[in-house]
Write a protein that binds this DNA or RNA. Structure first.
Length: 303
DNA sequence: AACCAGGTTATGC
DNA sequence: GCATAACATGGT
């Protein structure tokens, strides 16, 4: 028995653009992806609910593989946040159109949304994992962590992996994470961050009550979380459009290739650009990250 | 075999 | 406060 939810497609939305961005060149262990859909599982009331998102004419279709009707609204909210469906993109496109170097994006990436991950703990740990290492290795670490300390559930004969909970990760030792090729530093950061979440010291709901600045301060209070990581989390998990992971090498590479800054140390150039995208910083970052990747077709499926 | 990768912290002036 | 070093480990 499946529950099906249909959400009306907003203006300036492309499911294919979003789906492709979710996948990019990577192989996220938490997702099952094919040309037309993406599946994952989330915890709702202590129960894991697997679901699939696809598109159906003028709708975004969510299929929930459970009879659990209580989960439906939760899953719907999750997807609306995941694809940032509630936002009106028009003001952002108007700013893009004021920049000759960027205006092509309104056509080429038309309908791409701020893609993140509504699971804040996952997002934070992922951001810590991916600090200062290449993405190939980062995903390797993520997969090892999930395979060793996460879970999995059966999903139409395939298996959907589940991210380890904060409760599990807080009880790990540095040695156990080092055995998975995590550096000593990162192992400490991850265990500490997990403890803060497990204790309820930091949570998505608490962060949501704070201003952008307060969110960043709260996240930075964790050892191993700097400005880059904090901004990545607020932009990707709290849908905070002012999130701006300055110093991000991908961001700098993209701006260089668009000839919008003079080298990676060009702070003034950087500030000038983002001043003009006030309120849409995270969207510009997302679109610039999109620009780094290769053309969207053909898509490779799960490695 | 250097140099780099979706950084952060500690140290020194 | 701002530059620089130290950290840590695999990918290209």
């Amino acid at each position: 028995m499946k529950a099906i939810i249909k959400i009306k497609r907003p203006e300036l939305f492309s499911f294919q653009e979003c789906l492709w961005f979710i996948h990019r060149d990577y192989d996220d262990p938490l997702l099952l992806i094919d040309e037309t859909s993406v599946s994952r599982a989330i915890k709702v009331n202590d129960k894991y609910i697997p679901f699939t998102v696809s598109e159906d004419n003028e709708h975004i279709k969510i299929e929930i593989n459970q009879e659990d009707s209580e989960a439906a609204p939760y899953v719907q909210n999750f997807v609306e946040d995941w694809l940032d469906l509630k936002r009106d993109l028009l003001p952002f496109y108007e700013i893009l159109n004021q920049h000759p170097e960027l205006s092509y994006m309104t056509e080429e990436f038309k309908g791409l949304r701020l893609i993140g991950n509504p699971e804040t703990f996952e997002t934070l740990i992922w951001s810590i994992i991916s600090q200062q290492i290449n993405m190939t290795f980062a995903f390797k670490l993520k997969r090892a962590l999930i395979q060793t300390y996460g879970g999995s559930l059966d999903f139409d004969g395939k298996s959907l992996m589940l991210f380890p909970t904060a409760e599990v990760l807080q009880n790990l030792t540095v040695e156990k994470l080092q055995a998975l090729q995590f550096s000593k530093q990162k192992s400490i950061y991850i265990i500490n961050a997990a403890a803060a979440f497990a204790a309820g010291e930091i949570s998505k709901s608490k962060l949501l009550t704070l201003s952008s600045q307060e969110r960043i301060e709260k996240l930075i209070s964790l050892k191993g979380v700097g400005l880059w990581t904090a901004n990545a989390v607020i932009m990707q998990s709290l849908n905070d459009p002012t999130g701006l992971p300055l110093g991000d090498v991908g961001l700098l590479r993209a701006l260089e290739s668009h000839k919008m800054i003079n080298g990676r140390a060009d702070q003034d150039g950087l500030n000038a650009i983002f001043d003009r995208f006030n309120g849409w910083q995270a969207y510009l970052v997302n679109y610039l990250w999109r620009s780094l990747a290769k053309p969207a077709t053909p898509m490779t499926i799960n490695g």
